[in-house]
């Protein structure tokens, strides 16, 4: 069965979503990710959705949920690489992912998490 890989990079987890997910796969990612956060005591999660051409309200809700659950587990979530057309559509849909931090690309998202972590020390 297909599965979305979760990479560990130091204290952070990197998830790159590259397939047009059906709903079950999205739900599974949500579960796997929270498990991994606890298992590796991650402090940050980067979700790279630069390959996603469509984000509907279901995927949007999944992203918001992941961010909220990660926060409870003491990890910050940054969503990176939202494409312009996807951003415009999300806003029109009425979904602006409030409460989720965003960055242009993985590098900037990583810098954001590092800064946050440094500030907490």
């Amino acid at each position: 069965m297909e599965k979305i890989p979760i990479l560990k990079m130091g204290r952070f987890l990197l998830v790159t979503i590259q397939v047009d997910m059906h709903d079950q796969l999205a739900m599974q990612l949500q579960e796997n990710l929270t498990d991994r956060i606890v298992a590796v005591r991650a402090r940050g999660v980067l979700i790279d959705i630069s390959s996603l051409e469509v984000v509907d309200s279901f995927i949007g809700r999944m992203i918001s949920n992941i961010a909220a659950m990660a926060r409870v587990l003491d990890a910050e979530t940054v969503v990176v690489g939202i494409q312009p057309a996807v951003a415009i559509t999300l806003v029109e849909l009425g979904l602006s992912l409030e409460g989720v931090r965003t960055a242009l690309d993985v590098d900037r998202g990583m810098a954001m998490l590092q800064q946050q972590l440094a500030g907490q020390r």
Binding site: D20, E53, V54, V55, D56, S57, F58, Q83, P84, A85, V86, I88, T89, E92, L93
Partner: peptide
Amino acid sequence: VRQATRESAVAQGFSLVDQTKIVTAASE
């Protein structure tokens, strides 16, 4: 359904934003 809608939008010469909007609506 998303893929077929995208295909039709591309065939009709929709801009990327217009494609994304109708594909997202189709998904909902």
